[in-house]
Simulated scan of single mutants.
Amino acid sequence: MEQRLFDDFKKPAFDDWQNQIIEELKGKPIEKLNWKIAGVEGKPFYTADDLPNPLPQLQVPNHQAEALGIRNWVNYQVIDVVAEKEANEKALLALNSGATGIIFQLKTIPNFDLLLKDVLINYCHIGFKIEHQAQQLLSSFESFVKAKEVDEKGVRGFLHAGEEQFLSKLPNFKIFISEEKNENTHLGLALLLAKTIDVIDQNTNKAAEAQAWLKQFQFNLNVGESYFIEIARHRALRILVGQLANAYGFDLALNDIEISSSSGHWNEPTKDEYNYLLRATTEAMTAIIGGANAVIIQPFHHLFPKNTAQGERIARNISTILKDESYLDKTLDPSAGSYYIESLTAQLVEKSWAILQQIEEKGGLKSLSEKDINALAL
């Protein structure tokens, strides 16, 4: 017979919580406990009445669930390419030590035969970051894939270019599009979507081609320090991209929306460098719990200048620990049903979408000055 341990306890109602808070405040108004962080507004407590109806369904397994498990994220190692051979050795070491993706930071188009020697590109993710010559780089990489007779559908990763964007012939090779960090959370998400719309509209006016572009974006959030807001931001972005697809006239499956999360650079002075290890771990947790498909932890080179390999190993191992010791890969959407996080997510979706509509009514992001953009957050 099932034993229910809590039947003897009365379930507290909203009024019970509120009355208890008012009593403990000893005459101070409860509204004093309301808060606002980065434009996001909150209350002192939440109940089931704060849940959005219907609840968003973000419990979506990844495309390689059979091979990698239903919840998986790419653990990217960032490598600055000075010489192809040295970068290749670093990449092989990283992939054999827990990384599942490599981001090569490039100044020029590399010799791919040297850079990717012995790298099984069908079994990991490859990203390239380059400011100039992006189209030539992409064409050169596509030619390399073809020459090596690699399965094109199995090539995954992205191109992070500092200039014009291009669709790849490789169906799962993404276009990296990142937010510009903004002090107002709603405005930051709206600006990322507005940037996405501008890129699509500059390249096509056909719905079918717009769908191809939207499916091939790798959306990137620069993760901040506000734990629960960051979780809600990642969840909200997935919902917002789905809404954007609907605005273009088609449905986009949630597991076709790729979101990566990048940690900050570690440049502030500190007396205890290991504080940054805790900060980076917390930031990675928010991204993973929020549903990110990839986590990019910047190497701790600044903190360990005499041992850069240690800084790289620490950055690489954060994802491994969160997966193998904290079991964050066992649940698709661990924050689902949380009164607080679901409420934050709904607020971010509603207000960010409203700002996006204002931007588009004014002619799109390219038509707005910095002053116009800042006014949208008021």
Rank of each mutant, 00 (worst) to 15 (best):
C124S: 14
W73H: 12
D50G: 06
A91L: 07
N72S: 05
V74L: 01
Q77V: 04
H63Y: 11
A83V: 11
I79Q: 04
D118W: 01
P110N: 13
V82E: 11
G39F: 05
A99G: 10
L92I: 15
Q57W: 00
F45T: 03
V40W: 08
W73G: 10
N96F: 04
A94H: 09
L116A: 06
H125D: 09
R71P: 09
Y46E: 03
D113Q: 12
L55Y: 12
A83R: 07
L116Q: 07
A87C: 00
V74T: 07
D50N: 14
N72W: 07
F128N: 02
L114C: 07
K90M: 05
L116C: 01
L55V: 14
V81D: 13
D50Q: 06
A38G: 12
D80M: 00
D50S: 09
A99F: 10
Q105E: 15
I103M: 15
Q77L: 00
L120A: 09
W73D: 10
G39Q: 03
A38C: 11
A91P: 00
Q59W: 03
L114K: 09
N62L: 12
I103N: 14
L93R: 13
N96Y: 04
F104C: 09
L115R: 02
Q59T: 11
Y123A: 15
F104T: 07
S97V: 06
L55G: 09
F104G: 04
L120D: 13
H63N: 10
N111T: 12
P44K: 04
T108S: 08
V81W: 02
D80L: 00
V82I: 11
L106M: 08
G127K: 00
I70M: 04
H63A: 13
L116S: 08
P61I: 14
T100R: 02
L58H: 03
E84W: 02
F112N: 12
E86S: 02
E66A: 12
A67V: 10
L115F: 02
V78D: 01
I79M: 02
L116P: 06
G127H: 02
D113C: 05
D113T: 12
Q77D: 06
A38Q: 15
E41K: 15
L51N: 13
N122V: 03
A91E: 03
P110C: 04
F112D: 13
T100H: 05
W73T: 10
A83S: 10
I109D: 08
D113K: 12
K117Y: 05
E86Q: 06
G69F: 02
N75Y: 00
Q64T: 05
A91C: 08
W73P: 11
E89C: 08
N111F: 03
G42T: 12
D50E: 11
A83C: 05
P44R: 00
L106F: 03
P52D: 05
V81G: 13
A67Y: 06
L93M: 14
D49H: 10
K117N: 12
P56W: 12
V78N: 01
I37Y: 10
I79L: 03
L68A: 02
N88G: 01
Q59G: 08
V60G: 03
D49W: 06
V82C: 02
L55M: 15
